[in-house]
Write a protein that binds this DNA or RNA. Structure first.
Length: 682
DNA sequence: GTAGGGTTAG
């Protein structure tokens, strides 16, 4: 062996260059052939093949073995060459050799058949894999525990579960179904093919499960958007004493990302650090995506910045994280960095950047990325076309969105293309057109999904098409179970149309407890239509569900405020007129409204308007109108009096020569002759 | 005797 080793070494150093010309190489190998017994020759070639790192080199070796007929004598070397061809992405050459052996050599062993099947399967050649599997049967060669995993793998990744089931039957007949690898592949196939129960059943009945089986099942749950189940299984796996490896962690991180659990995200991150998994690009990428989905872009960025090597998935995860967290401008900055880094910009990158443009509502930017896509000659798949349409619709350019849609061949359009356009029409207020598209879509045989129904209900809502919306909802319940968001759309639609009781009845009929978006839609409708009674019910539910969401408190407070202004006071018109004349009189006397007291972020003009109708000003105006001039005007208020009202009351006390006594949340203010007892310190 | 399964962005 020592001798062979050095010979091998010598060959490698000495004849690399002449390889371009087969002659010297060939004569050298010939010498070897004569110098050693056939067994030793086989070992030499075996070593040669092991060190072979390119297709050209491999073809040379193949040629020599063919001309010396060694290929027909050594099935082992034949198999090694087939394996190498597959590794270098040349399954056709592998197949040619396989066929050659089939004709010239002994009948290929099941080992060789498996090798060829594997070459096809790993190269993603689904049809060839399955065809060879069937030829194998006809040739009378039995598949074994090495055959089945590859068959199941291609069935899984090409959604050919029926064919997979047939092969499963073969495995049962031959008794290989209880092999660990076969079982793991079956679990994977059934789970990926939406046949969870079958996959889970096999998994549960396995006599022995290793880490790969657990990971396959965990991954299946995660990819089927069942992250809770994935994590429950992960916990069980740990209870069984198995330790997660980097592949497991990738799936667990994805599951946690889906759930948005920031705390668990941190613990997975730590685990990955402790086990040095973050050095693997795949793990780092999934940890980045996890933090991004949990809303923590700083942590995502930290991982990203620490990476020694990044691929396009790393960059894209960051870009999409920034976009999804409302930091589109950060995404734009990072995109420039990505371009400078020389990393490949792929269709996913383009998709994210188009979505970022849509988020910013900038058709200028969106168009720039559209041009970039066309210039880069990258393949524009349906997802990217859909994103472009969505971007144009969201940037106010519905015409271009429609233009793109019309340019796509009808057979190419998927359900998402229709959804994008329907929602585009909806958000532009064209409810009738959205409905027409919805019918056209069904006529063309495209099955609507839950997003289609959300889009169409929302379109009806914005256009006030209540009857049509009701009908869509009824039709929808025939084929799919309505989700929260559909109820929210319905409540919004009915509520906007003033059908508050019907909206409330619908909420009461819901099979599951309504969430915040359903109650939020009702509350908004109550605000629009001034319904205090239902508003209180909606608000109370919202305050329990989302106690920290300030927007709902503001909405409810506005309902109360509107009710106050809602003219219960028979003199309201006089009061409002008085406030207006008071303002003019005060301004003549030098009053400048203190706009900083109007806390809403609105135009200056609106701020002044809001200030004028502060409840204490209305009360004082009412007092001036109603109370004898000799008497003090007394106002009681439950909040601290604002600066602007305080200033105004000083002016009024002077202009009208009246005492105004205001009790606010903390103290009394006595206004008289242009000043206040608090001496402006309160 | 040779060979094998589970992974990340949208």
């Amino acid at each position: 062996m020592q001798r062979l080793g050095s010979l091998h070494h010598h060959f490698f150093l000495g004849s690399r260059k002449p390889l371009l010309n087969p002659c010297p190489f060939y004569s050298f190998i010939s010498i070897c052939t004569f110098s050693y017994s056939p067994d030793s020759t086989e070992v030499i070639y075996d070593n040669l093949l092991k060190s072979c790192d390119g297709l050209a080199f491999l073809k040379q070796i193949h040629l020599v073995l063919t001309t010396t007929s060694l290929i027909d004598k050594s099935p082992h070397l034949g198999a090694q060459i087939i394996i190498k061809y597959a590794q270098f992405g040349d399954p056709n050459s592998a197949r040619a050799l396989f066929d050659h052996i089939n004709i010239h050599g002994d009948k290929p062993s099941s080992f060789l058949w498996n090798t060829m099947i594997r070459a096809y399967a790993n190269g993603g050649h689904c049809f060839e894999t399955l065809q060879l599997y069937s030829v194998m049967h006809r040739a009378g060669i039995s598949p074994n525990n090495y055959t089945f995993p590859f068959i199941f793998k291609v069935c899984a990744s090409n959604s050919l579960i029926l064919l997979g089931k047939v092969a499963h039957g073969d495995a049962l007949k031959t008794g290989f179904d209880s092999d660990l690898y076969v079982e793991a592949a079956l679990v994977d196939m059934y789970a990926k093919g939406d046949q969870f129960c079958d996959g889970r059943k096999i998994f549960d009945e396995m006599s022995m499960k290793d880490l790969v089986c657990w990971t396959a099942m965990i991954t299946a749950y995660e990819q089927a958007e069942k992250p809770e189940e994935a994590l429950i299984l992960f916990q069980k796996m740990q209870q069984e004493g198995l330790l997660a490896d980097s592949v497991t962690i990738v799936s667990v991180a994805s599951a946690i990302g889906r759930l948005g659990h920031a705390k668990r995200a941190q613990s997975v991150h730590c685990y990955a650090i402790r086990h040095l998994f973050l050095e693997e690009i795949c793990v780092a990428n999934s940890v980045i995506a996890m933090h991004a989905k949990c809303g923590d872009m700083d942590k995502a960025r930290l991982v990203f910045d620490m990476m020694d090597e990044r691929n396009s998935i790393s960059w894209n995860s960051m870009l999409s994280g920034y976009t999804q967290n409302g930091k589109a401008s950060e995404a734009l900055l990072l995109f420039d960095e990505m371009r400078d880094s020389g990393c490949e910009l792929n269709p996913v990158t383009a998709l994210i950047m188009v979505a970022a443009s849509a988020y910013l509502g900038s058709s200028h930017l969106g168009r720039k990325f559209h041009d970039f896509i066309l210039d880069s000659k990258m393949k524009v798949d349906m997802n990217l076309w859909n994103a472009l349409m969505d971007m144009y619709a969201k940037c106010g350019d519905l015409e271009t969105a429609v233009e793109i849609f019309s340019g796509i061949h009808p057979s190419e359009r998927d359900v998402c293309s229709w959804n994008v356009l329907i929602s585009g029409y909806g958000m532009h207020g064209y409810g009738k057109e959205a409905l027409k598209l919805f019918s056209r879509m069904q006529e063309e045989g495209v099955e609507p999904n839950h997003i289609t129904f959300t889009s169409i209900l929302s379109a009806c809502s914005h256009a006030g098409l209540v009857d049509e919306g009701r009908k869509c909802f009824r039709d929808m319940t025939k084929s799919v179970t309505p989700e929260m968001k559909h109820y929210a759309c319905m409540v919004d639609m009915l509520g906007r149309a003033g059908l508050l009781q019907e909206a409330f009845d619908l909420i009461k009929e819901m099979p599951a407890p309504p969430n915040d978006s359903v109650w939020g839609a009702l509350l908004l409708a109550c605000k629009i239509h001034g319904n205090m009674e239902l508003g209180k019910i909606a608000a109370n539910n919202l305050f329990q569900l989302e106690p920290n969401h300030t927007g709902y408190y503001v909405l409810m407070s506005n309902i109360y405020a509107a009710q106050t202004a809602d003219h219960e006071n028979p003199y309201w018109q006089e009061v409002y007129r008085k406030v207006e004349s008071l303002t003019i009189e005060m301004k003549l006397a030098g009053y400048i409204p203190d706009l900083s007291c109007a806390l809403h972020d609105v135009e200056e003009e609106d701020k002044e308007h809001i200030l004028n109708y502060h409840s204490e000003k209305l009360a004082v105006a009412f007092g001036i109108l109603m109370i004898d001039s000799g008497m003090a005007i007394r106002v009681t208020k439950n909040l601290r009096v604002c600066n602007d009202c305080h200033l105004a009351f000083k002016y009024i006390s002077c202009i009208y020569g009246r005492r105004i006594i205001v009790r606010d949340a903390n103290r009394f203010h006595h206004f008289q002759g242009g000043s206040c007892s608090c001496k402006d310190y309160w």
